[in-house]
């Protein structure tokens, strides 16, 4: 990645909370660093997961759709991570425990229905969250106002596929239901407070639940029962605790940069 906004001093946001604010133009960004890191990591990690579909999607149109969504998310990640520090260092040189993404986005792709279930949960959340941020005047507002329009297409894509799979064949119905149920326990974390992120989480949660339930009902699917969070999942990703497969994903994502430091083309 080449920095789009001006590259800043290598002040990893992870240490920004503890370290004194760096001087100069970066100081302005420090207040936004923690939430930008959390949301930037969400976008980066999901982008990478969706990128794993390249060459494996069920049809060519979906190959392009998933790659397009991944590209949008990567663009958002670059802007957000640049608010938190140096985008390349943050993406490629952090250890697993320093990532602040929610655990939902790091979950493996599974089958296509599983990926769509993840997309439905996440893009519904992301659209609502960006919508709230865009209406405020904080440092994340310009990016949120821009990205909310892109994410509306991601959410629409996930909804259309949820309807099609849920109300499709017995096999497709069963698969999307299985994905929705398996991922349900990662959804509670989306509504855990993020330090520095000033949003109305209960309003966000209510709107999310209404939206997701409406889609699932129309798709003849069942809203998963059971806890949407467990003691061990509550906010864990935001605190740097991740699930087993995330380490393997990071290894693949980071190995080129780590093996050839400073390489360009």
């Amino acid at each position: 990645m080449k920095p789009v906004p001006t590259a800043q001093a290598p002040a990893a946001a992870d240490s920004a909370a503890a370290a004194p604010a760096p001087a100069g133009s970066l100081a302005r960004d420090v207040a936004a660093a923690a939430p930008a890191l959390a949301l930037g990591d969400d976008a980066l990690v999901l982008s990478h997961r969706l990128g794993e579909w390249a060459g494996h999607a069920p049809v060519l149109e979906e190959e392009m759709a998933l790659a397009n969504i991944a590209l949008d998310l990567l663009g958002q990640a670059r802007v957000l991570l640049s608010l938190a520090g140096d985008e390349d260092e943050l993406a490629y040189l952090r250890e697993e425990r320093a990532f602040r993404n929610c655990q939902l986005v790091e979950q493996p792709n599974g089958d296509f229905a599983h990926t769509i279930a993840r997309q439905l949960y996440f893009s519904t959340y992301q659209e609502l969250l960006y919508g709230q941020l865009a209406s405020e005047s904080g440092p994340l507002a310009p990016l949120a106002a821009k990205a909310v329009k892109e994410v509306a297409y991601h959410r629409d894509h996930a909804e259309q596929w949820t309807l099609r799979l849920g109300d499709g064949t017995e096999e497709s119905h069963e698969r999307i239901q299985r994905g929705l149920t398996a991922l349900w326990r990662f959804t509670g974390e989306l509504f855990e407070p993020v330090p520095g992120l000033d949003v109305d989480l209960s309003a966000l949660h209510d709107a999310w639940t209404t939206r997701v339930e409406s889609v699932l009902t129309r798709a003849t699917l069942t809203v998963p029962q059971g806890p949407s969070r467990g003691a061990w999942t509550a906010g864990a990703g935001r605190q740097g605790l991740h699930t087993e497969s995330f380490g393997r994903m990071l290894a693949e994502m980071q190995h080129l940069h780590r093996s050839h430091p400073g390489a360009t083309w």
Binding site: E61, E62, M64, A65, A67, N68, I69, D72, E150, Y153
Partner: peptide
């Protein structure tokens, strides 16, 4: 509409 996403991010097929 064939696909909401096409050859570039800004186009549908």
């Amino acid at each position: 509409l064939l696909s909401r996403f096409s050859s570039t991010a800004c186009k549908a097929l």
